[in-house]
Design a protein around this nucleic acid. Structure first.
Lengths: 351, 351
DNA sequence: TTGGCAATCTGTAACGTTTCAGTATATTGA
DNA sequence: TCAATATACTGAAACGTTACAGATTGCCAA
């Protein structure tokens, strides 16, 4: 009853997974010929090629990944490297879906490689390279001088970064235009009469913090508004801390009448802080916030939002890495996503 | 200058990744002996074993995954199977971190295997089993009669489900006690004088919808409150739909004075719908909601929340799968997470 | 007729690992 | 002394794939 024990060499009717040997036996060809026929090598006769591919399709042949990987070193794996405490929730979810969307009809698998605060961010990357665990890597939280990007360039492994670096080295990236976001936000606030603005920045050390700050200050002087420093917290701080600092700030004489916030969750905290101080959103102060899922307008209708699409980022990053693996020039695999306009509350319910 | 071309057999000083052959050469032993020494096989002399392990550590030997996988079939991979449109954002993020936390100090990698609405949920699971791509699988959105669980049991691949099944088959799972959540929520609402309650349920077809509904109705009759049917939407519906249906419901004569909601995002929509109808949360109606990240209390202070920890779920599921792979009895790898008490708003800011 | 060449196809080896079936040496029992 | 046995180690084979270096055939030019 047990059909496990295979009959040595002739796998004629075995229920095991078909291999090249199976195909070779069925077609009467050699294993080498089958292998080449399946990958459209030139020295295989047209009819033979068709015949092999037909049989392969019929019996549902799928190349054994371990075999390929052992022989060629090709893993067919893309690794997404994530920080386990500081990524935005929606970022993780959306970027994964974006990546999987792109690799769905390729042989690639997505593996998630985490690292925590206590680790050197280089650790996971080093691991991947040393063990040859992936053909391509996606990293987030890019820094102006990013040791991970440098390391991967030195070791010749294709990668893409979410966010840009600034080392004079060229590599694929996808980024959101945070300069445009921040400057548009300032212009919008100025347009509704706000003149004393505070910025809740991205975390220190990341490239896009610089872009955001630059957009903010440039637009500030353009419209003739002034900045109220708000440097004690960033969007990486806890909700409670941001809330407390905001409340402190709003109880001061020289409080801001406008905020620009780089993340939705932080915006909740800012608003809570504003209200803790007894002030009212839309009357005493206005807030423009980035968001990645369309929820802020439910929170307070007075909020202004700019949408950032992380799913798109995931897709672009995946495309970039695959492109590099496929031999495209790294410099041609860079993309910058422009923010849409600043959106006010729009009533979508009712009848 | 190019040191790529290796010198055939004697890898004495090559900068390539060390293999068993490298270790064999360095120790003067055979490849077989080295292999066994590294896995503490009994027929290796104590000193030899120590010596081999020391050298292995020194030169940073790491077994080649492809070699192991090809020879033994062991992949050292856990696959997390996710629906690309209906998982909660926070679920994806947190469960991934929970899983990676547990497998961090094991040789396991986590791969994410997505499937979309248009696909049979069985597809990704079938793929994993047929291609032998993973040693263990984690699936979410368990159904009472779940073809995926049945399939994996039949094919003997270890797995764990987020949520329970109800097929008389025993397998590892982790679940949140949604019966307790719903009944506690009802009791809480009754305790503050609410008598006409509506339930926004989990999606039709999932096991925990039944648990939630049962907890809700049992507690209703226990406290002598009545149900206002709210069956046209579930938490899988869009924010806009839930909002619209809620507003419709709240404009009726026989509107509810209390809601129980199974997801935080849906709760935002419910509140928006309530306010669309011109009613006020906390005065005209109260809402108890589950949430997985502590943000709802920032949204409206009048909300009551119960926390569900998805990171814990991820850890438990990973532990369960690893346990099963390690030979533990599937029946011993089931866990149920009890909800905490219903939490009112607590002011945490200010001084 | 013969040598050359293009077009197809094939066997062998190798990637790194584990398992199987040994071998060599020392130790024991009688 | 010899055989039996335990201890410690080893080579060869195999997992499925691809690359290398041929083989075989037919055809054409000289």
């Amino acid at each position: 009853m047990d059909r496990r024990a295979s009959e040595k060499d002739d796998d004629t009717s075995a229920k095991e997974r078909p291999t090249l040997k199976t195909l070779a036996f069925m077609t009467g060809l050699g294993v080498t010929t089958v292998s080449r026929a399946l990958k459209d090598a030139p020295e295989i006769g047209a009819e033979t090629r068709r015949r092999v591919q037909l049989v392969a399709k019929q019996i549902g042949y799928r190349p054994n990944r371990a075999g390929v990987r052992l022989r060629t070193g090709k893993t067919n794996v893309i690794s997404l490297v994530l920080n386990t405490e500081h990524e935005l929730m929606s970022f993780v979810s959306d970027i994964i879906y974006g990546v999987t969307e792109v690799i769905a009809d390729t042989p690639y698998h997505l593996i998630v490689t985490p690292y925590s605060r206590s680790q050197d961010p280089l650790d996971p990357v080093r691991y991947l390279v040393e063990t040859g665990s992936a053909d391509g890597v996606i990293i987030s939280r890019a820094q102006p001088n990013d040791p991970r990007a440098r390391y991967m360039l030195e070791h010749g492994i294709p990668f893409a970064t979410h966010g840009r670096t600034d080392m004079g080295l060229v590599h694929p990236y996808h980024d959101f235009d945070n300069y445009a976001f921040a400057s548009e936000a300032v212009r919008h606030l100025a347009g509704i009469g706000r003149r004393r603005l505070a910025l809740l920045t991205p975390p220190i050390g990341l490239t896009y913090r610089g872009h955001t700050v630059d957009g903010f200050t440039d637009a500030l002087s353009e419209v003739g508004a002034s900045e109220v420093p708000f440097n004690t917290v960033t969007i990486d701080h806890s909700i409670e801390q941001i809330r407390m600092r905001t409340a402190q700030l709003m109880r001061r004489e020289d409080r801001p009448d406008g905020f620009v916030s780089s993340a939705a969750a932080a915006t909740l905290a800012i608003v809570a802080g504003i209200e803790d101080a007894g002030l009212k959103l839309g009357r005493d102060v206005d807030v423009v916030s980035k968001q990645s899922s369309e929820l802020l307008h439910l929170f307070r209708r007075e909020l202004f939002v700019v949408n950032e699409n992380f799913r798109l980022a995931g897709s672009e990053l995946a495309r970039a890495v695959l492109g590099w693996i496929g031999g495209a020039a790294p410099g041609s695999l860079q993309s910058l996503s422009k923010p849409g306009e600043v959106l006010p509350y729009r009533h979508s319910g009712g009848q």
